[in-house]
Write a protein that binds this DNA or RNA. Structure first.
Length: 392
DNA sequence: CGTGTTTGACCCGCGC
DNA sequence: GCGCGGGTCAAACACG
């Protein structure tokens, strides 16, 4: 690793063995130097030309420690679908800033080992490329959109392998939580072990005015640290659900203050956000829930109702058109396809379908989509997905 | 009163 | 060994 990169990593708070990936900005951002000296050459990301070939990216299933199954089979009734997240973020941006829209295009990438990356057509100024080094983020020169989110992840040895390993990681994590205040020798042992099998991490960049995105979970802030060479502090959050040791770090890019990087670590031990006060009603009928919540870190809400209420009462399909535009745009690029098995088992939704039927189920059964999206839009998306399959 | 935030102190790993 | 920086703790505080 070059001194320059080491310098950058150091300034970005990256340890040599940090599971969060470091991006080598060389090769116009197409070469990723992953942690542990793994390098993955990305396919040509001709995002500007909407000509991306991610065909091989989805060759293998991926797993990511993210609270939402971004690419979950839409046929399921799983509320934690990709679109759900879209809506969440949609809301977040819409309600928290002057932004009227944003895009969220995440493309799961996988190298030949165990690291998952999510790429998006996020607008990527030079500043972001630099920042991305901390979290293995996006490296491309995409056309910009008002608000964007890029997603990437890095995982430990277990995160991308199989369920058993993920469980092992989870167990260790929980053990760390419980035993955190044990004797120092034990703590040291734990730390050492933890180093070998760290929690899966999942980071994504978001262009937003607010630091702490409402991802549907309840978070408690437990720390804040100044980031070296950055005027913006890094905040540390922990999932407030009892027994759930998931953490996330939120920091703002010093180069581009409009960019927020959120890094998730660990697996949620609960199927969906739980709150002591019990707001589960939102989960079953988000659209009906018009609860007024804040944009604070502790807010726990399903966004679209607020979005609808606060954003000029846009009709449902208008909003979802926006969401779907993201998909469509990606799909038309041949970049956003339902990777099927690329769910996020890292978050341990044992009861959730693990995208059992790659590519097909989402096409035939749209789950939430079919209830909300205009059929024409669905068909467009589907056609694109089919075309992508044909390419394979 | 319950919940979440703030913030200084502390611990730990790492590089020199 | 020492200093630095990241990460965490926990008491104090704020808020509804």
């Amino acid at each position: 690793m070059t001194d320059d990169l080491s310098e950058k990593k150091q300034t970005q708070g990256i340890k040599a063995d940090d599971e969060i990936l470091a991006i080598d900005a060389a090769e116009e951002g197409r070469a990723l130097t992953l942690g542990r000296d793994r390098t993955m050459l990305l396919h040509k990301l001709e995002l500007a030309g909407n000509n991306i070939n991610f065909s091989s990216i989805f060759d293998a299933p991926i797993s990511l420690p993210f609270p939402y199954s971004y690419f979950e089979d839409h046929s399921s009734s799983n509320p934690n679908s990709f679109l759900d997240l879209l809506r969440q973020d949609h809301h977040q941006f819409a309600s928290s800033s002057n932004s009227s829209s944003f895009s969220f295009d995440a493309f799961p990438l996988q190298n030949n080992n165990d690291t998952n990356l999510f790429f998006t057509d996020l607008p990527l100024p030079q500043a972001m490329t630099t920042k991305a080094e901390e979290s293995s983020e996006v490296v491309n020169t995409a056309p910009t959109s008002p608000n964007s989110t890029s997603v990437s992840s890095s995982s430990n040895e277990a995160a991308n392998d199989n369920t058993n390993k993920e469980v092992a990681v989870k167990d260790q994590e929980e053990g760390d939580q419980k035993e955190h205040k044990d004797t120092k020798p034990q703590l040291k042992v734990k730390k050492k072990n933890q180093k070998k099998a760290r929690e899966a991490r999942f980071a994504f960049l978001t262009k937003s005015d607010i630091d702490n995105l409402d991802d549907g979970y309840r978070w408690r802030k437990y720390g804040q640290k100044a980031v070296k060479n950055s005027p913006y502090p890094r905040s540390y959050y922990r999932c407030t659900t009892v027994g759930c040791g998931v953490k996330k770090r939120v920091e703002r890019s010093s180069d581009d203050p409009s960019i927020v990087m959120t890094t998730y670590e660990g697996q949620h031990s609960h199927p969906f956000p739980m709150t002591p006060r019990g707001h589960l009603g939102m989960l079953t009928s988000p659209i009906l829930d018009h609860g007024a919540t804040t944009a604070s870190s502790s807010s726990f809400s399903i966004p679209q109702p607020r979005y609808l209420l606060t954003q000029h009462h846009q009709p449902y399909n208008s909003m979802y058109n926006t969401s779907l535009n993201m998909i469509n745009r990606s799909s038309s690029d041949g970049t956003f396809i339902n990777p099927g098995s690329s769910s996020f088992p890292g978050f341990g939704y044992d009861h959730m379908p693990q995208a059992s039927t790659p590519t097909t189920s989402a096409i035939r059964d749209h789950g939430l989509l079919q209830d909300i999206l205009p059929s024409q839009i669905r068909e467009d998306t589907i056609n694109t997905q089919i075309n992508e399959e044909d390419k394979k």
